[in-house]
């Protein structure tokens, strides 16, 4: 199997604080992997270690087959990073910023115009970065991270500053990029986003992975064995998914009482609470 990321027994200690404990996961090439956890659970620390910005206390971390701490300049050209500590040159315009990074990364000609369109900033390209709103800056940062069509893209809470319309645009962009082969490692505390974008998710809680699978697999695994009935008389009833429940449903249907039948499928957010006993965000 060809892996973009391989993490085995990763631990990180800051002084007394154990930020990550025995974290293990693999991300296949071409996968969109979601790292979900509340604030302080260790998401950013993981991204920093994966991108060689921070050294782990213990464990093995490989990116594109090489230890993350041994990445050379040429290897850095194969990855893209968007984190909360990414900056821009705020006296320069959007276009001047992107032109600069395009040259550093030797991105294809015309790529700056292309990504400006993709993130919806073509109209604003002549504006100095300091005049942009937080959401627009976030989109410039995303544009920069994807300029060179990286093989692996790291996104640390990329949509936290965006309004819903732009979140949608950004998801489209990420899907297109993924279709062209980019592996995406995404951290978020937005469960809906993860359910929409990710092939697989890991739940991080207090520096440990508590659960990891495809969103629909998790929904199956944590499915409740109940069904909701909405009746014509305005009442609701929850029945079990068993012969007794079937009998009840049969009776209501015989009496032509049933208005609607709802499954009781948990959302990723519900599952997270069940697994960790803690709410996200």
């Amino acid at each position: 199997m060809d892996y973009a990321l391989q993490v085995k027994d990763l631990s990180k200690v800051f002084g007394q604080q154990r930020a990550l404990q025995q974290v293990s996961f693999n991300v296949k090439k071409g996968e969109v992997f979601g790292f979900l956890g509340p604030s302080g659970s260790g998401k950013t620390t993981t991204v920093k270690i994966l991108t060689g910005q921070l050294l782990q206390t213990a464990g093995e971390v490989n990116i594109l087959g090489k230890p993350a701490s041994k990445m050379k300049d040429a290897d850095l050209g194969r990855i893209g990073i968007l984190t909360d500590n990414s900056g821009l040159y705020d006296r320069m315009t959007v276009q001047q910023n992107l032109d600069f990074y395009a040259k550093l990364y030797k991105a294809a000609a015309g790529r700056v115009e292309e990504v400006l369109q993709l993130v919806g900033l073509a109209e604003d390209k002549k504006k100095p970065v300091k005049k942009l709103s937080k959401g627009m800056k976030q989109r410039v940062l995303l544009a920069r991270a994807v300029l060179h069509k990286p093989e692996v893209l790291f996104l640390d809470e990329p949509t936290s500053a965006l309004d819903p319309g732009n979140v949608q645009k950004m998801h489209d962009l990420l899907r297109d990029l993924n279709r062209e082969g980019t592996t995406i490692f995404l951290t978020t505390h937005n469960m809906e986003e993860a359910a929409q974008l990710c092939d697989r998710v890991a739940f991080l809680h207090e520096g440990q992975i508590r659960e990891m699978d495809a969103p629909n697999q998790l929904q199956r695994k944590y499915a409740k064995n109940t069904i909701h009935l909405e009746l014509k008389n305005g009442q609701n009833e929850t029945i079990e998914n068993n012969p007794t429940g079937a009998e009840r449903l049969y009776q209501y249907m015989q009496a032509e009482e049933v208005l609607a039948v709802h499954s009781d499928q948990p959302t990723l957010g519900d599952i997270f609470i069940e697994v960790t006993g803690r709410k996200l965000a």
Binding site: T51, Q53, D73, A74, L76, G77, I81, N85, S86, G87, L88, Y89, D90, Y101, L104, Y105, K106, R144
Partner: peptide, 16 residues
């Protein structure tokens, strides 16, 4: 560049 977090970005780029 340090204060505005652009140096970190340069160090994470393929520029030496």
């Amino acid at each position: 560049e340090k204060e505005k977090n652009t140096l970190q970005v340069l160090l994470l780029s393929p520029a030496s």
